[in-house]
Nucleic acid binder design. Structure first.
Length: 324
DNA sequence: CGCGTTTGACCAGCGC
DNA sequence: GCGCTGGTCAAACGCG
């Protein structure tokens, strides 16, 4: 676009504040500047048309996404119900296999996870799709008590793409962790680090971090339990209030979960910051994430679109009124 | 000096 | 019962 050199289209997302009046004002100011600098009427009409088209397209995509999400949720619920009924019947038959206990579950889960992590590596983002199989194992554990414990104790698995040169077993998720152990496991030459949540003394959450045996640039973090306290970033007054499903700590991530009972798999991509996870890069990742979130929520916000359209039609079309 | 990390020791589950 | 393994503990250590 030839205007890009002249027009400051930024919404000043650096502060990552929610959409508020001041942002709207700033937008209007930017649009005023936009109209003032150069906008032949034809071009404005063309832009307006394009805007309408984009809005229509956006609307259509939003509807499609909503429908897809609804369908996905319905299917997921069906699958969950099916698995529950299947496990209820399996449990009776599996009672003889008393050997399968916590450790067995963990190790099987870990190995299967490690294998699958690499199988779904897609251009810097790890697509870890073991949630179905692991929930299967998870729920089909013959030990009823342990099963209930596991269900109660939510397990989340996070695959993090990092630099191979980064030897630290640190997954920055915003919480405070205290390392209490490290162990080299049999099926993986890379040591596994054990962390406890130290943000709240009573918080039962534990975290295990280990590099994938096959792709050492991938860190696999396993979270056990749920935090009994709010996310530290929320307490610090972080402007956005992301849920665990959209933001794990302060790094960009996506998550696939299956309700409250099964393990969730979350995918982080820490490769975009080109250096190992350090504070400035963490900030950059956070910043990028917030920008994306803001952009996404703004474009899906009907009132924002209406305000944008109103601002364009009201201000640009009347370039003479731009200043008092 | 306080706090977090490191690391060897210990414990419990599991297979043989 | 024994050895292997994963998970945890706690003393030693390092750092700010």
């Amino acid at each position: 676009m030839e205007h890009s050199d002249h027009v400051d289209t930024s919404l000043n997302l650096n502060n990552a504040k929610p959409f508020r009046n001041d942002s709207k004002q700033e937008l209007q100011i930017n649009l005023i500047d936009f109209g003032r600098k150069k906008c032949p009427e034809k071009e404005v009409d063309a832009l307006e048309d394009e805007l309408k088209k984009v809005r229509a397209e956006n609307q259509r995509l939003t509807e499609m996404l909503t429908i897809t999400c609804d369908k996905y949720n319905a299917l997921r619920n069906q699958f969950k119900e099916y698995m529950m009924s299947k496990n209820d019947s399996n449990e009776m038959m599996d009672d003889g296999i008393s050997g399968s206990k916590k450790r067995k579950y963990d190790s099987e889960n870990n190995t299967s996870n490690n294998k699958k992590v690499d199988g779904h590596f897609l251009g810097g983002v790890v697509k870890n799709s073991d949630e179905i199989s692991s929930s299967d194992e998870y729920l089909s554990s013959p030990c009823k008590k342990l099963k209930e414990e596991h269900i109660k104790e939510k397990i989340t698995r996070v695959s993090v793409q990092t630099e191979t040169s980064d030897t630290s077993l640190i997954v920055k998720d915003g919480y405070q962790w205290r390392k209490y152990g490290q162990k080299v496991t049999r099926d993986n030459p890379c040591p596994r680090a054990y962390f406890k949540c130290s943000f709240a003394p009573t918080c039962p959450v534990k975290k295990k971090v280990q590099r994938s045996a096959e792709d050492q640039s991938i860190l696999v973090a396993t979270y056990e339990g749920e935090h009994t306290h709010p996310h530290p970033s929320n307490l610090e007054g972080t402007s956005t209030t992301p849920t665990r499903s959209t933001m794990l700590g302060s790094v960009p991530c996506s998550t696939t979960s299956h309700g409250s009972s099964g393990p969730a798999t979350i995918t982080l991509d820490l490769t975009k910051p080109t250096k190992p996870a350090q504070q400035p890069n963490d900030d950059r990742a956070l910043h990028q994430f917030l920008v994306d979130q803001m952009a996404s929520s703004l474009t899906q916000n009907p009132s924002f679109r209406a305000a944008l359209a109103a601002a364009i039609s009201g201000k640009i079309l009347q370039p003479n009124n731009h200043k008092d």
